[in-house]
Write a protein that binds this DNA or RNA. Sequence first.
DNA 1: CGACTCGTTGAGACAACTCAATGGGTGTGG
DNA 2: CCACACCCATTGAGTTGTCTCAACGAGTCG
Lengths: 234, 234
Amino acid sequence: MEKGVLSAAAMRSALFSQLPATETSRLLAASMPRQFQPGQVLFHQGDTSEYLYQIVAGLVRITQINSEGEQITLRIMRPGDLCCVAAFRQPSYPATATAIEDTTVLAWRVGSFVALTQQSPAIADNVVCIAGDRTREMLQRATEMTGKCIAQRIAASLLRLSAQAGTATADGIHIESPVTRVDLASMAGLTYFTVSRTLSAWQKQGLVRSGRHRLTILDMARISEIAEPRPARG
Amino acid sequence: MEKGVLSAAAMRSALFSQLPATETSRLLAASMPRQFQPGQVLFHQGDTSEYLYQIVAGLVRITQINSEGEQITLRIMRPGDLCCVAAFRQPSYPATATAIEDTTVLAWRVGSFVALTQQSPAIADNVVCIAGDRTREMLQRATEMTGKCIAQRIAASLLRLSAQAGTATADGIHIESPVTRVDLASMAGLTYFTVSRTLSAWQKQGLVRSGRHRLTILDMARISEIAEPRPARG
DNA sequence: CGACTCGTTGAGACAACTCAATGGGTGTGG
DNA sequence: CCACACCCATTGAGTTGTCTCAACGAGTCG
C-alpha cells in the first residue's frame, strides 16, 4: 500500500479525528507502516508493550487466555481502530493480537507515542476518548457475560461481531470467512455445539442464514431484541 | 471533612499523581466537594453525564443492569478512584454508582474537567493511564466470566473484591459489612445460593471464614490458585 | 470421484438454578 | 435479662439446560 493511501485511510479514524494539520503530520512522521499476514501475531499477551498499532487495512483478532486455558476472543479490530488502548501506559500487553486477514498498520513506539500525547492536548484528548469508549465496551461485555440465558449472550456477541467485522448487504449484515462460529463461541464463552444449535434454531426462524464459513444476519431487529429483551432503559 | 484534609487525601490518587503544583491547584480549584450517604446514588445508568467524581473517603458500588434485568456489580470504588472514566467523553453514564458508606467526593463538571485535560498534558496523561487501567481490568473481567467452572469465577471475584474493598488483618484480608455475598454473587454472575454453597465448602477447608455480613480470606494463596489454576503464562 | 474439513445432530451426564424449609445471629421490647 | 421477631445465611430436593462425546451430513479441494 502506498504511503499517501495509507495516511489517507489512517486519518479517517478516532485517533486522527479533528486533529490540526501539525499534529497529524507529527503523528504520521513518528509512525512506521507495517504489514502482517493472516495468522501473524502483532503482539502476545504478557509481552512487554513496545508498539501501539493503528489498523489501516485488514482485520485483527484480540484474544485472551482464560483460567481454563481457552482462547477467548475479546473483539475484532478493523481499520480505524487503535490497538491497544489498554496497554497504553502498562508494562505489558493484556491480550494477544493476531491478524486474520492481510493487515496494514501504523506502528508507534510506545515511548514516542506517549511523548506525542504529552506534547499535544488534541492527541491526548482523542486517546482519552478512545480509551473511554473501549472501557465502556468492555464494561458492557462483562455485564453481558453474566447473563444466564445463552441465547442472549450469543445474540449480544453476534451484534458485537457484526459491528466489528460485518459488511452490510442487501439481505442483511454479512459476517465473512475469517470469522467463524468458533469466534462466536469463544466470544460468548460457550461451546461450539451450543452455538451451532442456537444458530440452527434461528435459521429455522429466518433470523440468520448460516453456512460454511459465512453467516448473515437477516433480522437484525429480532436479534437485538433477543440480546436486550426489555428495551434498554435510559 | 475539612478542605485541607480533603485535598491531602485526594492527592494520593492516580489522577493527582506526579502533577506539578500548578495543575494540582487548578484541579482542586475547579472541584466541588460533595457528600453522599449510604444508599444515595451518585449517578444513574443512562443519565446525561454531568459530573466526574474522585472518591476521597467512603465506598461506592458500580452496577449495571444486564439484559435479564438483574443488577450486576461491576466493581467497588474506594478512596483514590476516579468515577467514571468510561463516561469521560460519553453523553451518558454507562453504569449506576451508589454510595455504600458515608462517602466524600470531589466533583467536576464534565465540561470544566475536559477543559483542564485539554490545557494540561499532565492531567490528560493521568486520565489516559487510569482509563487504560480500567479497560484492562474490565477486559480481564470479561474473560474471567467466560470460564465454565463456577469456583474460578467466585475466586476471581473474591480477589477483585478484596483488592477493592478489603482490609488486611492478622488473619487475612477482611471484607466488611456493606459488601455482602450478594455483591459477590452479582459480580460472579451467579445465584446467591451457589455462592453460599461454595463459600461453605471453602470454609470447611479453611480457605475463608464467612459469617453474617463479614467475610475473611484466610488462605489467599489457594484462592488465587483456584482463580488461576495454571500460573498465568508470561 | 474420494478424502478431508467444517458443521449439525443426538443421547447421556452433570452442574447450577429454582424454590422451600431450616438454622443461626442480631436487635428490640417486654 | 430473657424471649421474641426479623433478617441473613445455609441446606436440601427436584428440574433444567449446557457440556461431553460420538456419529452423521454436507461442502470443498485435489
